[in-house]
Design a protein around this nucleic acid. Structure first.
Lengths: 218, 218
DNA sequence: ATCCGACTTTCTGTATACAGAACCCTTGTG
DNA sequence: CACAAGGGTTCTGTATACAGAAAGTCGGAT
């Protein structure tokens, strides 16, 4: 693995896991020493992060980009646009059997959620497989790329919302509805199911954030 | 201006103006000598281009990304998704007076088009102002960023379509219709007008490309 | 004649040294 | 006491040198 990849992966994870708070300045020498790489690959890593929007190139050095409540609204507005369209396209172009299988697995997901942590990991992996299947079904690399670059920011927000078992169970049912609509080849229904899911998800995030707004500033 | 910015601007223009054909390998020493900068800032420029999708980091060196006919379809599918939504949002949130003014200017655009080259530049600048006004009206930085990263690729395609006076006049009328719908605060109409414009534009590009498909391979 | 392998060459990836610029702190003055 | 100017420090931006890897090439063997 290249040193620049290592630095990129480490910094990216530090940012999405909120170990590096928004506003933190990433000085080159400081970070290169911390990560055990030279300044050259570190600069390349910072460039990639800035291109993704996780960091911003300010006057002196790059700073971790802030995510505020208005940003969450904007983020979900774009997400609704992209994923709604993606679901509709997947319903037109996707393979029915693939999504029927995913739907069956998602309907059994509550067993995973009620379990302990390792089972939870299986659940997240299952949801990831649905995303991947949609990406493949739409057969549009530009749209898929736009969704990938969006998901980076969504992971950052997910850490703010304490996903309890109740919400995860509901989310699994919503995902199953999306998979069902795609398998049925119904574009409008697939888009509608996606919009519903995203709105519920957004409401949950905002409700969580409103109740413990300062959890991550300590 | 930094050396990396200079290299980035030069390479980007070379690519979108088709002076660097798709598939061209950009060797670091060769390009750094050609552009008069060192390898370090050149690498940063290549990284930015790769992040935008204009180049691809293959096995050895980076190569100019190819744009095929299927890519054009994919590109316009994403464009319809993003710009359709953007027009709808602008109709809800935009300032009516701004778009009324733009509509009036666009209705007078045929005078610019029938003229010679300097007037044509004024026309392109006017269309750019409409894009900028929509970007500002939606007040969603993530959506705006997604559209900006998409426009880079569209400029590349625009060079393939010989925009004759006939098509430009029609396009101006379509743009005026979009501005009118936004000024009227009608989201569905604004989206529909945008979809119509994009489909006409796509048809024109494909028709042009079908008649002289090999123009840029000499 | 063709295919496999080692060698050579060239390119990328990384480290480091140096120069210029930006920021901060200090000091002097109004 | 406030503010501005100067110097000093620290950081970024750039160039270059070196090492490792990949691709091309040449030679030998089957």
């Amino acid at each position: 693995m290249r040193a620049s990849d290592k630095a990129y992966a480490a910094l990216r994870e530090d940012i999405v896991e909120w170990r590096l708070a928004p506003g933190t300045v990433l000085a080159e020498v400081e970070q290169s020493e911390r990560l055990g790489v030279s300044r050259t690959p570190l600069r390349e890593a910072l460039g990639r992060l800035t291109a993704e929007g996780l960091t911003t190139a300010g006057g002196r050095g790059v700073v971790v980009t802030d995510i505020s409540l208005e940003d969450i609204d904007e983020l979900f507005e774009l997400r609704e646009t992209l994923e709604g369209r993606a679901a509709a396209l997947a319903a037109r172009r996707g393979d029915a059997a693939t999504f029927e299988r995913l739907q069956r697995e998602l309907l059994q997901a509550p067993e995973l959620i009620s379990g302990d942590d390792p089972a939870l990991h299986d659940y997240y992996e299952l949801v990831g497989r649905l995303d991947t299947a949609i990406d493949a079904a739409i057969s549009n690399s530009y749209l898929a790329q736009a969704m990938r670059s969006l998901r980076v920011h969504l992971v950052r927000i997910r850490r703010l919302a304490a996903d309890d078992a109740c919400r995860l169970t509901a989310a699994a049912a919503e995902h199953a509805a999306i998979a069902e609509a795609i398998a049925a080849g119904n574009p409008k229904l697939a888009e509608a199911a996606t919009v519903v899911h995203l709105h519920r998800s957004l409401s949950h995030v905002k409700a969580t954030h409103a109740s413990h707004p300062k959890e991550h500033h300590g």
